[in-house]
Simulated assay, not measured.
Amino acid sequence: MPTRNGLNQLQESQNQRAIRDVRRISENPQGTISWEQRIFTARAAISTFESTGFVRFPEYAADQILVICALQKLAYPEVDSAGVVDISDWCMAQWLLLLTRNPEDAGALRGLGQNWLARSQAALSRIHRQEGGSSSGSSGRPLSTNDRIGYSSSEEAREADRANVEADARAHTADYVEARGMLIPAVDFLSRAVEITEADGTLTGDLLSEAAESLMHLGNVTYSHNNEQYFTRAIRYLRRATRMPNFRLSPYLQSYLDDYGRLID
């Protein structure tokens, strides 16, 4: 007999079991379930969701967000890993399906932004390693045209120009191009999620921090004549995050705000 969403009882039971399995592998400490078993269970759950059309049914809305978020986190066990491609791709496809149902779905927009941001980390890590953590890599803020205001000598200004020329030369390279290609949609989706949640009163410090991080990274891999806009937006998001109740920035983001916030009105 079909249930109210059109699934038969067997399909409904399969969905519920797959949801429980995803909860189990995402909530249990990593030491209690092997990595191989987690991936096997995740792929089995995805197979079930595909066969039942899980994401097509609005009745599962809360479970859909939970499941896709959990599987997306599983797909990127290390910050700078290339990820488990098939699981990551499935998650992205499901976020897009949710957006076709509701283009204003902030959860789906945020999930897509997180997916693109996670995909960018491998390229950003390669950039950081190649440049030894220099200011134009993924961990710092490059010098911009506006920074020249405080220079005490023409030599310092020339040095800044040389740094920008070198940074722009690196911006042509494959890792920079790859990172930009992933960070641009990350910024777009996360910024849209910020706008929607701000309008409906559900904006959080966590979302603002994620959006700021994506902007910081994009600024670091963008040509010098165009990167200031990203750093400025990042600082403004971080400032707003500090004003959110019961929220604190991570030490890294707080340090970034302390160091560079004074440069932004």
Rank of each mutant, 00 (worst) to 15 (best):
Y256S: 03
F54L: 04
A122G: 03
G53S: 06
L74Q: 07
G150M: 01
L124P: 04
A186K: 01
G137K: 09
F54K: 02
N226Q: 14
Y151I: 03
D63S: 13
R148Q: 11
Y260E: 03
G140I: 01
D147P: 10
Y260M: 01
L253M: 14
F49N: 00
L98W: 02
S224E: 02
Q37S: 14
R20M: 13
R20G: 01
L257R: 07
G261N: 04
G111Q: 01
S34R: 10
R4P: 05
L97G: 08
Q64S: 04
G205Y: 08
I184F: 09
L190I: 05
S51I: 02
A82S: 12
T52F: 08
G219L: 05
Q9T: 05
T41Q: 05
I264N: 08
F57A: 04
Y176P: 03
H128Y: 12
A167C: 07
S120E: 12
V85S: 10
T145D: 12
A44V: 07
L207I: 07
Q229T: 04
Q16P: 00
S224T: 14
Y176E: 10
L10A: 14
I264Q: 07
I235E: 05
S224W: 09
L143Q: 03
P58M: 07
V187Y: 03
H217E: 12
W116H: 15
R239T: 06
L249G: 06
T3D: 08
V177E: 11
S224N: 10
S152Q: 13
L238V: 04
D259E: 15
T222G: 00
R248Q: 15
N164K: 15
A70Y: 02
E198I: 03
R180E: 10
V55W: 11
A241I: 07
E131H: 14
A234S: 14
R148M: 13
I19A: 08
